[in-house]
Design a protein around this nucleic acid. Structure first.
Length: 249
DNA sequence: AGCATTGTTTCACA
DNA sequence: TTGTGAAACAATGC
């Protein structure tokens, strides 16, 4: 379920595991832990403690004490962070850390598209969608010929917006997802930025992006909460996109 | 059985 | 060279 709101929730979970001594690491999943060989992450972390948990967009990273490495984490399409829970069945805990005293931290991910890596590189990741100001947002988002929906999903432009948050944001702003990003007026970009902030804030507060007003009606027999009309869908920016043809002309 | 999926990266093409 | 779009990746659920 991970978009920015879920990633922020995961970051808060990791904060529960700070300042505990790491005694073991399960990094045997060579796909989730690529390009590291099994045992590499374990060797770098055992004996250390996590000291701070950070997030930019959907990307998470944790600092360790002393001159220890940073641990990067990504939830992929279906991941979550579990603290002090029993191991999941079917080896769904793709990466885990065991602490002195018996606690643990796990990256639980049925789909296995999540990621754990040492010294993550975020040089290609844009500013966080929850932090960026109106000016920076307009400069970065309001350019190019791609549909605005695709522009919002580009993590190098602004980080943290996923398929559902993009649809919710465009609906709140009353903008058609296929509108070319570079053709939008300053007023429309301002409205889009405000919509992004409110949609993100609501999703974090209510527990996830699926709680969005429009996202909850984002299906074939749904109803637009504003006009009562029927949402429509198409493939835009490589993703299934839903919008209200009446409210988003 | 077949298709879609709340994500990211890589590759082909204009 | 830059930007855009599609495919690949893994595994599950409808």
């Amino acid at each position: 379920m991970p978009e920015l709101p879920e990633a922020e929730r995961a970051r808060q979970q990791i904060e529960r595991a700070l300042e505990r001594e790491i005694v073991a690491v399960d990094d045997r999943d060579g796909y989730v832990c690529r390009p590291h060989a099994p045992g590499e992450i374990e060797a770098a972390l055992v004996g250390r403690r996590f000291t701070r948990a950070h997030r930019r967009g959907k990307f998470l990273w944790v600092e360790t004490d002393g001159d220890g490495p940073e641990l990067g984490l990504h939830l992929g399409m279906a991941g979550s962070i579990r603290i002090d829970e029993e191991p999941a069945p079917n080896a769904w805990d793709r990466f885990s850390v065991e602490f002195a005293g018996g606690g643990r931290m796990a990256l639980r991910d049925k789909r296995r598209l999540g990621r754990a890596v040492l010294e993550p590189d975020f040089s290609h990741v844009g500013p966080d969608a929850a932090e960026i100001g109106a000016k920076g947002f307009a400069e970065r988002v309001g350019r190019g010929t791609a549909p605005i929906k695709a522009r919002l999903l580009d993590q190098g432009v602004v980080a943290g917006i996923g398929n559902l948050l993009a649809d919710e944001t465009l609906w709140r702003a009353g903008l058609h997802p296929r509108r070319p990003a570079g053709d939008m007026s300053v007023e429309q970009l301002r409205a889009l930025h405000r919509a992004l902030r409110s949609a993100t804030r609501d999703a974090i507060r209510l527990g996830g992006v699926h709680t969005g007003d429009f996202v909850a009606e984002r299906r074939r027999d749904g109803t637009c909460p504003r006009c009562g009309g029927a949402p429509t869908s198409a493939r835009i920016g490589g993703r299934t996109t839903w919008w209200c043809p009446n409210c988003q002309p």
